[in-house]
Design a protein around this nucleic acid. Structure first.
Lengths: 213, 213
DNA sequence: GAGGCTAGTGACAGCCACTGACAATTGACA
DNA sequence: TGTCAATTGTCAGTGGCTGTCACTAGCCTC
């Protein structure tokens, strides 16, 4: 069979419902804020019962992070695919840039890329969402540490370096994302540029003295 | 006036209520889990109305993080007090160890130190609490970055190094705390030791190649 | 030390996220 | 076409949290 066997009517209907809920949710969140949007409002615009929303998403938050989780798994995969001889931090860096560059194709299949970028900003500016994102990011770091440890043939529970490396790297990334979301330039180009700049700052930061005088 | 003017009866009563609520809350959380404990249970053991709980704490979470916030402000203060010529990362490191060493006196005034350490573990093992802790930690990092920038006479918004330094440092700290809370040794000594070990791993981690072969 | 002021509290009603149970509907498939 | 199973709607309920209002008890003044 050449074309991926077309799913049945039931499956397509489900897909459409999830899609409609996701879009309605994100657009309402962006328009009037996450906390000020009730689940009832979302389901009313899609015209399904409130119960249905909770059958597709574990909660309001899951809708927000739906696209994020796709990005994240692509990121982990990108790290896995890096050449095995590349230094750990370099592999992380290259994978990050790959993901930013391929943002459109990956996320675009779920929601428009622009909607996704706006959602990123919403997360940074909503304390409850920021908290959840940081927790998710911690889980991601754990996974990355295992990938790095495997690449280097190390035991993640004995050698501190895989976890520390990932923590250091992701720490810098987080700073970048935060700054980007506070700034005015929403373009993908600008976040890419910031990322490069802050990652380059990691090594000099560890120097004993910063003052050049 | 020599003795700090004794607060009135009203004030003392308030203090006692807050204290009773805090203790009851933490003990219930530890005994049966955070989510499985309702506010009603807490207020029933203290014998006040549910409404009163929310007059003292913004929510269940605030009770959990009450002692943490005291620790955090002590940490920031400790960093401020480090000798100005000390390198940034060294100042952060020393301040951290100071805080761990003086844990008893600081937290002990609010809740028993042991209760606090158990609460730390509860936080790490409860996703919702972990998320909030990470967000609080992000706010702390922002504050620390400003302190570091000031020490070094830098502009925190132009130079990436203060924020990156703090992010790197706190990233390593976070890994430490997480490992400690997963392990069996609850003693303050063990977290101090782990902290030293992981902070020492930061610099070698940034080396190009890890393999010594 | 009587009486007014006000901070702190309890009681109650209500909003919203989320869940369980059961009935109604609708695609799938023989 | 009829049966089965997946999807959905309805309804009732739990728990965190808030607004309101009346009341009590510490305080402050005269």
């Amino acid at each position: 069979m050449v074309t991926a066997s077309r799913p049945g009517l039931r499956e397509r209907k489900k897909q459409r419902t999830r899609d409609a809920l996701l879009h309605a949710a994100l657009e309402l969140f962006l328009a009037q804020g996450y906390e000020r949007t009730t689940v009832d409002e979302i389901t009313e615009t899609v015209d399904v019962s409130q119960r249905t929303f909770f059958r597709y998403f574990a909660g309001k938050e899951e809708a927000v992070f739906f696209a994020q989780s796709v990005m994240e798994s692509h990121f982990v995969e990108a790290v896995r695919q890096r050449p095995p001889l590349e230094a750990p931090l370099e592999a992380l860096r290259q994978a990050t840039l790959e993901v930013w560059d391929g943002l459109g194709e990956v996320v675009g299949q779920i929601i428009p890329a622009e909607l996704h970028l706006h959602t990123c900003r919403l997360i940074e500016s909503t304390p409850a969402l920021l908290a959840t994102q940081l927790r998710r990011s911690a889980e991601l770091e754990e996974e990355l540490a295992r990938v790095i440890a495997e690449r280097e043939g190390l035991d993640v529970d004995t050698d501190p370096r895989p976890r520390v490396a990932v923590a250091v790297f992701c720490g810098a990334l987080r700073v970048t994302k935060r700054l980007w979301s506070c700034g005015d330039d929403t373009s993908p180009a600008s976040i890419r540029e910031l990322t490069v700049r802050y990652l380059d700052a990691v090594r000099p930061t560890l120097a004993e003295k910063w003052r050049t005088e």
